[in-house]
C-alpha cells in the first residue's frame, strides 16, 4: 500500500533525504523494508526457528 498509494500523498521533492528527492527515497525505503518483511514472515512461518 505504501508503494501503491504513498505517491498520491507524498509526491514531492522536498525534504531531501540522503541527498535523494523525497518520493525516490520513499520508494527505496519500502523496497528495502519489503525484504525485511519477507524475512520476518519466513521466520514466523518457520515457527521462529533459524531458516533452513
Amino acid at each position: 500500500m505504501a508503494l501503491l498509494v504513498g505517491p498520491f500523498f507524498l509526491n514531492q521533492v522536498h525534504p531531501w533525504v540522503l541527498d535523494l528527492p523525497f518520493l525516490l527515497f520513499w520508494v527505496l525505503l519500502w523496497t528495502t523494508l519489503a525484504s525485511g518483511f519477507m524475512g520476518l514472515v519466513y521466520w514466523i512461518e518457520r515457527g521462529g526457528s533459524t531458516p533452513r
Binding site: 508503494l3 501503491l4 520508494v27 527505496l28 519500502w30 523496497t31 519489503a34 525484504s35 518483511f37 519477507m38
Partner: peptide, 10 residues
C-alpha cells in the same frame, strides 16, 4: 521501475 519488483517478489 524500482517499486513493482519489491511487491512482486513478496
Amino acid at each position: 521501475i524500482i517499486a513493482y519488483g519489491a511487491l512482486a517478489y513478496g
